[in-house]
Design a protein around this nucleic acid. Structure first.
Lengths: 129, 129
DNA sequence: GTATTTGCAAAATCTTTGCAACCCT
DNA sequence: AGGGTTGCAAAGATTTTGCAAATAC
């Protein structure tokens, strides 16, 4: 990752301009509005680079696709199993802090996923998963 | 899910007899020792049923594969990004309890995933992700 | 006997990769 | 020139699905 191509710039700008947690395919669709002939492989390659360099976070919410997040500050993702929405949440204190002491485990950038049902869906009787 | 086939029994017995968090493919390999001509499709179909009925949990640790867990009691999964190991952990108090109040969000069966580096790997300089 | 489940194979989905051409310094 | 990056297409990997035959109750 030495050269900053306009493809990478465009991909970053797309990710940074949304507060959703987009998938590679969504990003691909959006970036093509800026660079029509960009290829999906390039999007995947750049996302891998950006993830590895810590510029974006990889979020797994259990839908079989990788989601990305431009917000690398500590927060939780509430992943609704009914509607698929991903809600950003913050807790007053870091609940995971004790893991280092208790298990010698070092959490990565503190973004965690909690699956369940959001306020809108929990009243409905939508079929889970 | 009305009929309890011997295939489903075998799949359940395989999952319940390990303390790892096996993938569909691993389960398939093991079940074939019991039922040699069982098909992978059957394994996937039964896992989907077992997951939906709450008999097993689906665990996403970010490696692109779905893992399953026979232990449905509240616990955390510490997923090591270096060696791939999944460690079962328990916290003294439920850190996610406040989510219901704060966000109106209902967590599913309380099994959460935290990604990071385990005690063995954190001292090594293994390449992340 | 009827509804569910299976085995098989094909298809679908998401992601990775080989390679020649291209861009940047 | 030379290393990194791209576009394209093919390949990989995991999971899902259509359908006739077999099984369960």
């Amino acid at each position: 990752m030495k050269n900053y191509s306009r493809q990478r710039e465009a991909i970053l700008s797309v990710i940074s301009s949304t507060d959703t947690h987009p998938t590679a395919d969504w990003i691909y669709t959006e970036v093509r509005k800026l660079i029509p002939n960009i290829s999906l492989g390039t999007v995947y390659r750049n996302l891998a680079d950006l993830r590895q360099s810590g510029m974006v976070l990889s979020v797994d919410v259990g839908d079989g696709k990788e989601h990305f997040d431009y917000d690398t500050s500590p927060h939780l993702h509430l992943s609704c199993k009914a509607c698929g929405k991903i809600i950003d949440a913050r807790l007053k204190s870091d609940p995971i802090a004790s893991l280092s002491e208790d298990y010698g485990f070092v959490p990565e950038i503190p973004v965690y996923v909690v699956r369940g049902y959001c306020a809108a869906c929990k009243s409905n009787s939508l079929n889970p998963q």
